[in-house]
Computed example of a mutant assay.
Amino acid sequence: MKKFLWIAFLSFCFSGVAAESDWNADSVQVYFSRSVTPVVQKNWKDHKLILKTYRQFLKTCESVPDSVLKQCSWCFIDTYYNMACCESMMKRKKAAVDAFEKAIQYGYYDYAHAQKDTDLDNVRDDKRFQKAMERLREVGDFGYILRKSPGYDDAASIDSLPAFTYMDPNDRDLVRVRRYFNLDSIAGAGDEISKIKNLLAWVHNTIRHDGSSYNPEEKNAIALYEICKKEDRGVNCRMMAQMLNECYLAMGFKSRYVTCLPKSYINDCHVINVVYSNTLDKWLWVDPTWNAYVMDDKGNLLSISEVRDRLKKSEFVTVNEDANWNHKTPCTNDYYLDYYMSKNLYYLQCSDCSGFNNETYVEGKRRPVYITLSPTGEPYDKRWSTSNESWFWASPYK
C-alpha cells in the first residue's frame, strides 16, 4: 500500500461536504484530502477502517458527473489501488482484483511498484490479476515500452521540414547574455568539455527547479535570472533548458533544447539540452534540472541517441556522481535513467531555430517550428515528424 497518498495542493479553504449541485473537481479533491487522506495515513494498518473510509468516499461521489470525476482521477487511483492492497491482505482475492482493475481503469500506471508491492502477494497467482498486470505493463513498464519501440529510418524524406539553425554568438542579444553573466569566467579556461560542464553546473546552481511554477512572459536567460532573484522562485525544466541554451549559444556552442516525450502522456514530460562537441563530433546530453550528463562504462559522454539505444538494449549507462535535484535529492540511475527518462525518450522534439528569446511571444516575430523525431510508423504529428535520425542529429557544421 502507498502509505503516503498523492495529496492535491489547493490554495483555498473548504469545510464540510458540498451539496450535489456544487460538486466540481476542486471540491472532490478537497473532500478527499480533508476527509479521506488523514484517516488513511493515521490508520494505515487498520484495513477494515481504511476500506470503510474509501467506500464512504465512493458512495459520496456516486452522484458526481463522470466529467468531474475524470478531472480528479488521482483520488480514485489512490482509492482503488489501496483498496486492492487491503482486500489482498485480508485474502479476499476477487474484491482485490476488482479494485486493482479499477485503479488501472482510472489511470494507475506504476508497474514497477505493483510488481514489488508485498501487499498484493496474495493475488499474484490469480489469472485475472496476472492479465491486469500484463495490461499495466503496456502503459507503465517504460523500459519495456522503449525496447518495443520501432527503429528509425534514415531513408525517410525530410524535404518538407525546415533546417535547424543556430543564432550567431556575435548577435547583440547573445553578446549581452555573455557579458551580463560573465560567461567567459564561468566557462573557464579549460578544454571544450570542461567548459560545457561548467556552464551546465552554473545554470543548475544559479536557478532552482520548480516544476509547478508559471512561465514568465519573457523567456530569455537574463529575464529568467532576474525574475527568479526578484521573486525568490524557481522555474520549470523548460525554462532552465532555455537559459542553458542561450548560455551555450552565447559562448559559441551549437545548442538545442529538447522536449523528451513519452509514448502516451503520463504525468509529465521533460526538457533537457544537447550541445555539440567538436572534440567528440556529436551532440551531448546535458540536463540542467539535474546537473546531469550520461556516460558509458568507460566514462565517455553520450548523446541522447546513444543513451536511448543503450537503454533499448539494456546496456550500461550512468549519470555523473554529482548529479542532483536542487542539491536535495541525488540523481540515481534506477530512477533517472531506468524509470524517468526511459518514459520520456519515446519522442524527441526540437525547435527548428535556436536563439535568444526563442519562446517569447513577440508580435510579427516568426514562431519556431517544433520537429519531432518519431519511431518509424508512429509519427508524433502528421506534418512536423520524421523518423530520419541521421538528419535530426546531423552535425551542425556539415
Rank of each mutant, 00 (worst) to 15 (best):
C75D: 04
M133A: 10
K343G: 01
K70C: 00
L337S: 01
I158W: 04
N326P: 13
S395N: 11
T79N: 04
G299T: 11
S212E: 14
S277M: 12
R176P: 00
Y265P: 00
V362F: 05
C260F: 04
N300D: 13
P375N: 03
Y265A: 06
G188Y: 06
M251R: 02
F12W: 06
S185K: 15
R367S: 14
Q242N: 14
Y180L: 00
R135Q: 15
D168E: 12
Q115A: 01
L146R: 08
R178K: 14
T372E: 10
P65N: 05
D381T: 06
C75E: 01
Y257M: 11
N24E: 11
Y257F: 15
Y335E: 03
I196D: 03
V369A: 11
N357T: 06
V97I: 11
Y265T: 01
V235T: 13
S264F: 11
D117Y: 06
N267R: 08
D119C: 14
V203A: 13
D117C: 04
F129L: 13
S35D: 15
Q130Y: 07
N324S: 15
T118D: 13
P216G: 13
F356E: 04
F12K: 08
D117H: 06
H204N: 12
G377H: 07
S374G: 09
S264H: 07
V274D: 10
V175L: 09
R233G: 08
Y336M: 05
K282S: 10
S342T: 05
G234M: 08
L261G: 00
P38T: 10
E62Q: 15
Y106F: 15
V68E: 13
Y293H: 02
K42Q: 14
Q115T: 03
T118W: 06
L51R: 13
C260I: 03
P396C: 01
K382F: 05
A99Y: 12
N245W: 03
D154I: 03
R367F: 10
Y106N: 04
A223D: 02
V64N: 09
R147Y: 02
N245E: 11
Y152N: 00
K127Q: 08
L51Y: 04
A103S: 15
V68A: 00
I104N: 11
F253K: 00
V317M: 02
G107P: 09
M83P: 10
E321G: 00
V307S: 04
G299Q: 14
S385L: 08
A18L: 03
D171G: 08
V97L: 07
S15T: 05
V235I: 15
R135K: 15
D268H: 09
I158Q: 02
S88T: 06
F164Y: 15
Y293R: 02
K3I: 13
L348I: 12
G151L: 08
R124A: 09
N344D: 07
K219C: 10
R172F: 09
V275D: 02
M251E: 06
